[in-house]
Simulated scan of single mutants.
Amino acid sequence: MSPDDRALVDRFCDMLAAEAGASRHTLAAYRGDLAAAAAVLGSLGAADAEALKALGGQWTALAAATVARRSSALRRFYGFLVEEGLRADDPSDGLPRPKVKRPLPRLLSTEEVAAMLSDAAERAVAGAPLARRNHALLELLYGSGLRASELVSLPRRSVRRSDPFLILRGKGEKERLVPISDAAHRAIANWLDGADDSPWLFPGGRGPLSRVRLFQIVRAMAARVGIAPERVSPHVLRHAFATHLLEGGADLRTLQALLGHADIATTQIYTHVDSRRLVELVNERHPLARRHRGESD
């Protein structure tokens, strides 16, 4: 990437961080996509519509989701240049717009999660420190719907026995309230009772537990109760949290807040999980349905 392009990308990323609250991971992703485009175009700042249209032809071997992400990054980049008066025109109309079908999340039943929790709780009673830690990890993953990165980065002081929730800085550096169940509180207290002093709730080596290690722990816990390990991950447990809440009657707006989704469209993926229950909900709760049954409001 040329020095001129690098300067433009730096200004663009400064804007994303200041105005959109983009995380360092998001900024790194933007930089990577723009650098990949610059390697083909030669110059980001001077590229015209024809060059960008030809760029789409260079991406034919890439997955649709990758093409969509790179196109989105370039559109936002050139929109920024126009807004800042750094370009008179926006050449991004020629970029491809592939249709990306969002994959449905893998699901665990309530019985399967209950089996994992029951096994983890029984092992924690035996008193082994790692068993107590694993039980607390599982209670938080499923009971609060945390992302893996959010869980492993929790400071030790973030969970207080007197508070039914914690304030979490999640994706995009946005803060949200995360409820903590009584079972999770008990599991965490059991884990911390006698645990080594550390600034992290779940330490691992010289810093917090790594996401890779968390992934391994969760899969091992699944295997112990007869669940195929490839079906389970920290993110699958987050999906289970959302799915089972929706099945229990939670509305999408509440679910959006609990999961920390910026856009409710992201949360709507969970409406597929129990369409029969949603139809029954309309038939039972809608005023017209009650009138048809002869009930008063």
Rank of each mutant, 00 (worst) to 15 (best):
L237A: 02
Q268P: 08
N283Q: 15
Y270A: 03
E284I: 12
V273P: 05
P287N: 05
V282C: 08
T271Y: 11
Q268Y: 02
R276M: 10
R238S: 06
G260S: 05
R238P: 08
G260R: 01
L258G: 08
A265C: 12
H261I: 00
R238V: 04
H235Q: 14
T266Q: 05
G248S: 07
A262F: 05
I264V: 09
V232P: 06
G248C: 02
A242E: 08
A265L: 11
R253D: 09
Q268T: 06
A257L: 14
L259H: 01
L258E: 06
P234Q: 10
L246P: 01
I269Q: 01
H286I: 05
E280I: 09
D263A: 12
L245G: 00
A240K: 04
E230P: 15
V232A: 09
R285P: 13
A265P: 10
H244Q: 05
V279A: 15
H261D: 03
R253T: 09
V282R: 06
L278P: 01
G249F: 11
R277T: 08
L237C: 03
G260H: 04
R231D: 14
R253S: 12
H272D: 12
R277G: 15
V232Q: 05
L237K: 01
S233C: 07
P287A: 04
A265Q: 13
N283K: 14
P234C: 05
L245F: 05
H272A: 11
R285D: 13
L245M: 06
L255H: 01
L278G: 04
L255Q: 02
A289H: 12
A242D: 07
P234M: 07
P287T: 00
F241H: 02
H272N: 12
R253Y: 11
R238I: 05
S233G: 06
D274V: 01
R277E: 08
L245Q: 00
T254L: 15
A262I: 07
R253V: 07
D274M: 02
L245A: 02
R277S: 08
L288P: 10
H239Q: 11
L255W: 01
H261T: 00
T267S: 06
H286Y: 09
L259S: 00
Q268S: 09
S275H: 14
H286F: 10
T243M: 14
D251T: 06
V282T: 08
L259E: 04
D251P: 05
G249L: 05
E280N: 13
T266H: 03
A262Q: 10
D251V: 08
T243K: 12
R285V: 14
R253E: 07
T267W: 00
I269V: 07
D251G: 03
H261K: 00
E247T: 04
T267P: 07
I264N: 02
L281V: 13
T254M: 13
H244T: 03
